[in-house]
């Protein structure tokens, strides 16, 4: 190849690139960078393992003292009292009650919002409403807790007789507002994924817009909407601050939304706030409850994930 005058680049810098040197190994830097990045990715796996190990280990020492039967069959939860009972059900009931109220608020509203945004609203409306809903999701939960305790509950006390200062209803409603954006946005994605051809097919048969929405689009998106609802449930089950502030700290086996209850998360927070010494049975209760909470949310997340995958498969 002809050498040209400016070949100092080639001579000085590219000399190393000629044929024999094609046989250079992968550079050390390339390998080091790859290893570092893989290490960063591995941290997320280690986190999961860490959570499982911590929960299982402490819960195991808890169950070594308290048989799982007492945990699952007793109807009372009073580990901090002199007369100790270790039945998880009051905490589960509190969790289900607040979650149920939250979903009762968030699912209908969220679904209507999703249908409106996906099927009926103009682009301009959508551009305004979506960020506003996202704002709802961004409010810290401690703030929702404060709102539930200071404004929602006092407001409800005018309407609902016998409503205590701490109650599942106010906390549940605040939690519903919190998870509404999540349900709305995931449902909207599901509705949006329904092929336009299905809608057009319905219109061609003389369906009105609403007819198409309810008979064709929503059924086609059902599994996605289900996934959204389940994810909302999982979020509500795992939510701590709203219930810790506004729902009270009295574990009781009830479905009455007017009285104070305690959720699994609120119990963990309550014990953490006190100065229960490390290594005691009381201390270990939070890990047993934590393990139950972990398994419950994991199951819900897996279920939601499956449903979404099915939706994706159907759309493809």
């Amino acid at each position: 190849m002809a050498l040209d005058p400016l070949s100092d680049v080639r001579a000085a810098a590219l000399a190393s690139t000629h044929a024999p040197d094609l046989r250079a190994p992968r550079s050390l830097r390339e390998r080091a960078v790859g290893a570092l990045l893989a290490g960063a990715a591995a941290v997320s796996v280690l986190t999961t393992i860490g959570i499982v190990v911590v929960l299982v280990r402490e819960a195991a020492s808890f169950f070594a003292e308290i048989s799982p039967a007492r945990f699952l069959l007793d109807g009372e939860w009073t580990p901090l009292f002199a007369d100790k009972h270790f039945g998880i059900w009051p905490l589960v009931a509190g969790t289900l009650l607040t979650t149920g109220i939250a979903i009762a608020v968030a699912l209908p509203l969220g679904l209507l919002a999703a249908i409106y945004l996906s099927e009926l609203a103009s682009d301009r409306v959508r551009r305004w409403v979506k960020p506003a809903l996202e704002l709802l999701a961004g409010v810290p939960t401690v703030v929702y807790g404060y709102l539930a305790l200071s404004f929602i509950t006092p407001g409800l006390q005018h309407v609902v007789p016998g409503l205590a200062g701490f109650n599942a209803l106010g906390a549940g409603i605040a939690m519903g507002v919190m998870i509404l954006p999540l349900i709305a946005s995931l449902s909207e994605d599901a509705l949006y994924a329904v092929p336009a051809a299905l809608r057009e097919g319905a219109y061609a048969l003389g369906a009105t817009k609403l007819g198409a929405v309810f008979r064709v689009v929503v059924p086609a998106a059902a599994s996605g909407i289900g996934a959204a609802a389940i994810l909302g449930v999982a979020r509500a089950v795992g939510e701590t601050m709203i219930v810790a502030i506004a729902a009270g700290q009295q574990p009781r086996l009830t479905l009455d939304p007017r009285v104070p209850v305690e959720t699994m998360t609120a119990y963990i927070a309550q014990v953490s706030l006190g100065d229960t010494p490390h290594g005691t049975l009381e201390y270990r209760t939070i890990f047993a409850v934590g393990l139950a909470l972990f398994l419950l949310t994991l199951a819900l997340n897996v279920l939601s994930h499956r449903l979404r995958r099915r939706l994706k498969g159907a759309a493809a």
Binding site: S44, V45, T47, T48, G50, I51, V54, L55, L231, A234, V237, G238, E239, T240, T265, I268, A269, S272, I286, F287, G290, L293, F294, T297, L298, L300, N301, H305
Partner: peptide
């Protein structure tokens, strides 16, 4: 793993 982690309630990170 990342999907799973995203669904873990924040209070459990506290226990970890």
């Amino acid at each position: 793993n990342i999907t799973t982690l995203a669904g873990v309630p924040s209070i459990l990170y506290g226990l970890l």
